[in-house]
């Protein structure tokens, strides 16, 4: 009996894969119906432009940027605490459950990459942007509820999401360098 059990045991030990799949979750925008009107253009100050070229260089708001500075720059853009003229506007004050009157930022992050960009670089940029949002939400959540965003229950985290919505718009990639054709 024990022999058979041992045999099975060894089989299952070998067959077991313990790796859990982890990664960055994203929701793609739904497909556009063909006869949809073009959305009104967004004001320049409300757009945070992030471009990655085929050489994996990062250009943010028209300037070359090191990836290590991307997070802080993004946070600065979204939060805009001093209502700076160059940084995004705020929507008119609105009432959010559990939080109260709050002015939501109109900022949109526009991410565009080349077809030749390496996937690793793209994911790193996505990661930095996610970090920026997560830290902003954490700060805000700490200030309002005294807890980190990830520790909140469903209703509270929903309120935070409403106050700091994650808006990353991905434009169709360009093929400037003529690299990486399918």
């Amino acid at each position: 009996m024990a022999d058979i059990a041992f045999l099975l045991l060894i089989f299952f030990i070998i067959a077991t894969t313990m790796d859990v799949d982890r990664g960055i979750l994203r929701r793609l925008p739904p497909p556009l119906p063909p006869d949809v009107e073009k959305p009104p253009p967004i004001k320049e100050r409300n757009v945070f432009q992030v471009l990655i070229n085929a050489n994996n260089q990062l250009m943010v708001e028209g300037e070359l940027l090191d990836i290590r500075n991307l997070k802080n720059k993004t946070k600065e853009f979204i939060a805009n605490p001093a209502d700076n003229e160059d940084l995004p506007e705020k929507k008119p004050p609105q009432n959010i459950d559990l939080i109260g009157i709050y002015k939501v930022s109109k900022g949109v992050i526009s991410l565009q990459n080349d077809r030749g960009t390496a996937y690793g670089m793209y994911l790193q940029v996505q990661n930095e942007l996610t970090t920026a949002y997560r830290e902003l939400r954490d700060d805000f959540s700490m200030q309002k509820f005294g807890k980190k965003y990830s520790e909140l229950d469903k209703n509270h985290s929903k309120a935070i999401q409403e106050a700091i919505p994650m808006v990353i718009s991905e434009a169709e990639p360009k093929n400037i360098a003529g690299m990486g054709k399918p």
Partner: peptide, 21 residues
Amino acid sequence: KMGVVTDIKQKMRDMNALKIM
């Protein structure tokens, strides 16, 4: 290269398979 990944993403969008990781 991102080209392949973008093509996949577009296809997934067309199929309405939006939740990706």
